[in-house]
Design a protein around this nucleic acid. Structure first.
Lengths: 317, 317
DNA sequence: CTGTTAGCGCATTCAG
DNA sequence: CTGAATGCGCTAACAG
């Protein structure tokens, strides 16, 4: 590997001039910049990350923090798609993506502390939201640059989110208008996650606009037989996510109930498509989410951003 | 952050002695080592990763290379569990996990090249196997240390794998003996992946031992109605993975066929558990896979290792 | 606009 | 057994 020294020599300038030229320092003449870059290209020069980190005090690395997995937050392919989108942006910037992914909160915190204090990583993407989270508390305390993907947890936090409220509204409207549903039932996980509440708010808004009444089924509390006896008018399903829909179908197996009702569901995982291809999906576009999160992370003027979604008809792909 | 200089000063030794003491250099007296380490602990000293990398020429980082996703290889929660297991080991070693995850092969190769040449990352975990893969070809050419998780692709490669052949055998036996199945049907993806072939070999071996006959259904080629007309004796299902099982159930919806046959399936994803809780699963223990892969990666004497699995009854968890 | 010098934190020669 | 000096590759303060 050729170093900046080799480049400087070949371009007949000093090392510092070469460094400045390569970094587009305005104090260097256009001619010199061109020459240095040209030579660098010929020599196939690649700047050393560790050396840069050592002298600047900040690594060209973005840390991605995954939630600790448990029965309520299973390992999720959605997250992989997010980081795929994020890394695409990072590769272009010559950045590296490091992951903090652990089994328990204590090790996760240690992992992140090590990243900050030993690896000089000062930019993070946080893939979850959680009240009283020691990890984000640490990031705030140490004034690290981070963006949360999901609902913001604290007032000052920067975040990027799907427009879940709008998605809930559009999905409900789709069911009512395109599918002719009269009484859609909202299936909730019962975990009261933020995105769930947002989608629910959209659902309620759409129904209110059409003069319908909201009705929801709580997977933790409701009992299918009793519920459907009490609400025979239900003729469509809207589920807050793929997992909830499959749980719901599973509960339904114990009662006689027409499983063929039109259904719409957030997220668009492959397993779901295979298990229930007839369902309409709302694609939350995880890759785009990841890519935009990186842009937001490096644009410190902006505090937050909402990203789009796409309703995917049942037979599509 | 305190540096090695601070430690040296506080311990009243030179920087070089401090460095050696912290690295358990045998040329340093036990007393000095103890004193230096003691002081380091008090000062909460953490060695700087970038500085170490710069002087040693090798980063304390393991790169994990994900397969490029397409319709045949969807983003998979199994992979997330693997890296969770791997990172648990890495955090203990004060290593960082970096991920190469891209949309296409060309960028993936660039990503990995950048890791090697710019970030001095020389240890990798490869999460896939593929013939004529430019990425692993590059790793071999540059003599990087890497371990493949899955079936080895080239003779010299080091790898770590589930014992898929044994798992296929045990799963088939389980179906025959515990569930009293006479004619189990093997459901294959039709993609001819290595792990699939291994599981199939185990299936055949188990049947041969019991005097049964092998029968398989190819999701790409077979047509359900015709197939089942020709093979009415099928009374149990063994699927090569979770996705294949759900695909199979989906194809089955078009024909009248008792879906309630006993079934066993490799992998144990949450969506599957929700979609088909009655299925028996073979847990391939991805976290353990990840953890052992790290151990193998750093134990250069060993070339490969097979890891276990666990048959999980339908109602369990 | 460009060159000289110093320093980031650590490992490692080379001396002693 | 330990210390002083050097260098890893790069950026930045200081000079001109």
């Amino acid at each position: 590997m050729s170093t900046i020294k080799d480049v400087a020599k070949a371009a007949q300038v000093s090392v510092s001039t070469a460094s400045r030229a390569l970094n587009d320092n305005p104090r260097i003449s256009a001619a010199t910049i061109a020459k240095v870059k040209q030579v660098a290209a010929v020599l196939d020069y690649r700047p050393s990350g560790p050396a840069k980190t050592l002298s600047k005090g900040e690594a060209s690395v973005v840390g991605v923090i995954f939630p600790v997995t448990d029965e309520h937050a299973p390992a999720n392919p959605f997250q992989l798609d997010i980081i795929r989108g994020a890394n695409t942006e990072l590769v272009a910037k010559n950045y590296v993506l490091a992951t903090a992914i652990c089994q328990d909160e204590a090790s996760l915190l240690k992992n992140v502390q090590a990243m900050v204090e030993q690896s000089q990583i000062h930019n993070f993407l946080v893939l979850y939201t959680k009240a009283d989270d020691p990890v984000t508390a640490y990031l705030r305390e140490k004034a690290q640059n981070f963006v949360i993907i999901g609902h913001p947890s604290q007032p000052g936090d920067r975040y990027l989110n799907n427009d879940n409220q709008l998605a809930g509204q559009k999905a409900t409207r789709h069911l009512l208008i395109e599918e002719g549903v009269r009484q859609p039932l909202l299936v909730c996980s019962g975990h009261h996650w933020a995105y769930e509440a947002d989608r629910q708010a959209g659902y309620q808004a759409a129904l209110a606009a059409q003069g319908g009444t909201a009705l929801s089924y709580d997977l933790q509390k409701d009992e299918p037989a009793a519920f459907f006896a009490a609400h025979p008018s239900v003729d469509g399903i809207i589920a807050v996510d793929d997992i909830s829909l499959l749980s719901f179908y599973n509960q339904l197996q114990t009662v006689t109930w027409p499983k063929q009702l039109p259904a719409i569901c957030f997220n668009r995982s492959r397993l779901l498509s295979l298990a229930s291809p007839a369902v309409i999906k709302v694609d939350m576009m995880p890759r785009q989410l990841g890519a935009k999160a990186i842009n937001l992370l490096f644009d410190k003027h902006r505090t937050h951003q909402l990203v789009g979604f796409r309703i995917v008809s049942a037979n599509e792909k």
